[in-house]
Amino acid sequence: MEIPYTISTRPDTGLWNAKVGIWLFLASEVMLFGGLFSAYIFLRIDAAPGMWPHGLLNVPVGTMNTAILILSSVTVVLAWASLKMRRYRAYWWYMLATILCGVIFLTVKLAYEWPQKFEHFGAYIKPEALGKYEKYLGNERRTEKGLEPRIEITGHLHSQNAKEYEVALDPVNAEPDNPAMDRPHFFPLPVTDKIATIEKEDVERATMFLPTHSAYFASYFTITGLHGMHVLGGVLVFIYMWLPVSKRLYQRNPEHLANRVEVSGLFWHFVDLIWIFVFPLFYLL
């Protein structure tokens, strides 16, 4: 059975069917991500002072990944334009570039950014014990300057026993009164060799930077995870369209392949569009 209107337009819609299909799918995707973004806004407004962390993500790496995704949006639209001009060789190269961009994006996220977070440790101090750790928090100065209080000590978990944690401190806790630590840095500062001992009875909760750490990381991992799954889906579809099986379709009917690339390209641009909002919301603000 032949699928109707894969190339020719349907008289009542004025469009070939897959195009209507992909836009309806993208409409549902807007609602899916819209729900998650509204949850993000809700959680962020709800966060008590000091409970929404800033500057924990690697901004240069995030910027690079944003650039890679934008670049892939350009290459996929060039791949489609090449098919429209019946230049298969150029299409093949542009599609390969798109696939590589997607793979690099995912590799950076899964093999570098996320594991780095899993190795990082944070301990939220109980309100009544904050004074005891003032030398790591610098809240007297922050209160004077009208800044949000620091209630968490972060770094690498050096060791722990039944009673206490030993943490190699992040610079923000190693030099809490340094004005340079009031704002996040573009290049992440390495963990210092200054060790702090934190008694477990003074800790409200302590965890690695996992979804359980905070509403911030819960929404970060949920949204970037779902976005990453979309990138993976797009890459798999593009691989199929890059393989010889699609060349056979091109030889049979080049416009059919061009239309397939157009709808998968529309999905890819949408994934790029979501990242355009994810990047500033989680990395910069």
Partner: peptide
């Protein structure tokens, strides 16, 4: 996002 939607999409 507007540029992506208007031109690329």
């Amino acid at each position: 996002a507007g540029a992506v939607a208007l031109v690329f999409m």
